[in-house]
Simulated scan of single mutants.
Amino acid sequence: MGGIAMVDARLAVSLPGLELKNPVMPASGCFGFGDNSFATKYDLNLLGAIILKSATLDERIGNPAPIINVLEDGALNSVGLKNPGLKVILDEKIPTLRAKVPTLPLIASIAGSTKEEYVTVAKSLSDSGLVNALELNISCPNVHEGGMLFGTNPKVASELTRAVKAVTNVPVYVKLTPNVTDIVEVAQAVAAAGADGLSMINTVLGMKIDVKTRQPVLGNGTGGLSGKAIRALAVRMIYQVSHVVDLPIIASGGITTPEDVIEMYLAGAHCVSVGTAHFSNPTACLDIINELPAKMDELGISSLQDLIKEVRSAH
């Protein structure tokens, strides 16, 4: 359990429901519920926050193996929202993590097959007092029902956001899918429905075929493409959305270096979540946190909060 991180006040960011000492957090699924191998590399209290693995009402066994294929410039995954279900998560998983990180902001990710399931899971997690915010996963491309279907239709996304907001007392960040014709339209719809923030972007629907076996490399056939391969797409979409929707944005999509973090801020982000980088560097989050102050000095950035104001006022 090695690793230290400098506490630099210039890295602090204030968001609805979240006081972050730095802007870096593992993306949903990467650290499980603080109980997988990536989560054992250093003291989790050094992170800005943790986004937990997506929770559904009942246990999900996920998609057929193989579920992950690491590429040169990213990864394909079709995990399929595998999780032990709400009861185990509330009774065991989050309390165990919370005991290790009593003051660290925790963002619970919620998913479902129906609007009713989302509402039930959201209310239970909100009422538990164990988490500081919710990430509404309406953008998973790896499930056959629910998931991305909620995130591609602005009207449906709006209705779901409104229904979840009506039963929760913690901020709700809606995770947007890039697999749409116009992401701005969806962002505007969930903002109008009362979303407290946005998380973007989720994975891009992709596929890889093994030329020797002539079969897809994933058991599900298709999967979500993440990592460096989608960073330019993420930057473009965050830039577009931040110019028309005045909500804080948790940026994700191929972030591996401090420069990537700054680029996301210049596009309009308020903090970042790191995912695929962990496959090649298990301490990616901690390394970015430690290297960020020097990069800010080099670029003449006094604080991240000032950078947010500067970028947003220029819009």
Score class of each variant (00 low, 15 high):
residue 227 G to R: 05
residue 235 V to P: 00
residue 258 P to E: 13
residue 226 S to Y: 03
residue 229 A to F: 04
residue 246 D to L: 00
residue 252 S to K: 06
residue 237 M to S: 05
residue 242 S to R: 05
residue 250 I to D: 06
residue 257 T to H: 13
residue 239 Y to K: 00
residue 251 A to Q: 07
residue 253 G to C: 07
residue 243 H to P: 00
residue 234 A to T: 12
residue 249 I to V: 15
residue 249 I to Y: 12
residue 233 L to Y: 12
residue 248 P to A: 12
residue 228 K to G: 00
residue 240 Q to E: 15
residue 257 T to L: 06
residue 232 A to Y: 05
residue 236 R to E: 12
residue 236 R to C: 08
residue 233 L to P: 00
residue 234 A to Q: 02
residue 223 G to K: 05
residue 257 T to Y: 08
residue 246 D to I: 03
residue 249 I to N: 08
residue 223 G to L: 09
residue 224 G to M: 12
residue 252 S to N: 12
residue 245 V to A: 01
residue 259 E to M: 10
residue 239 Y to H: 10
residue 253 G to N: 10
residue 246 D to E: 07
residue 248 P to D: 09
residue 242 S to A: 14
residue 224 G to V: 09
residue 256 T to W: 06
residue 232 A to E: 08
residue 236 R to P: 02
residue 227 G to W: 02
residue 249 I to L: 07
residue 226 S to T: 09
residue 243 H to D: 02
residue 254 G to W: 04
residue 250 I to C: 07
residue 232 A to L: 11
residue 256 T to R: 12
residue 254 G to I: 06
residue 244 V to A: 02
residue 250 I to N: 09
residue 259 E to C: 01
residue 229 A to W: 08
residue 256 T to C: 09
residue 248 P to F: 10
residue 243 H to F: 04
residue 223 G to W: 11
residue 256 T to F: 10
residue 241 V to D: 04
residue 258 P to C: 14
residue 239 Y to M: 00
residue 255 I to D: 13
residue 253 G to Q: 09
residue 243 H to N: 13
residue 230 I to F: 06
residue 257 T to C: 05
residue 236 R to Y: 14
residue 238 I to H: 06
residue 229 A to K: 05
residue 225 L to M: 14
residue 224 G to Q: 02
residue 253 G to P: 07
residue 240 Q to G: 01
residue 229 A to H: 03
residue 238 I to G: 04
residue 225 L to H: 05
residue 226 S to G: 14
residue 244 V to I: 11
residue 246 D to K: 03
residue 258 P to N: 13
residue 248 P to K: 08
residue 229 A to G: 02
residue 249 I to W: 12
residue 259 E to S: 13
residue 247 L to P: 10
residue 256 T to N: 14
residue 231 R to Q: 14
residue 254 G to H: 03
residue 222 T to F: 15
residue 246 D to N: 13
residue 221 G to S: 09
residue 258 P to D: 10
residue 240 Q to W: 13
residue 235 V to R: 01
residue 233 L to Q: 08
residue 252 S to R: 02
residue 251 A to S: 11
residue 234 A to N: 00
residue 254 G to L: 05
residue 229 A to P: 01
residue 252 S to A: 14
residue 245 V to E: 00
residue 241 V to L: 06
residue 222 T to N: 13
residue 233 L to V: 14
residue 243 H to I: 04
residue 231 R to H: 13
residue 256 T to H: 08
residue 238 I to W: 11
residue 230 I to S: 04
residue 248 P to T: 14
residue 235 V to Q: 01
residue 253 G to F: 12
residue 252 S to I: 15
residue 227 G to P: 00
residue 251 A to Y: 08
residue 239 Y to G: 00
residue 225 L to W: 11
residue 250 I to Q: 09
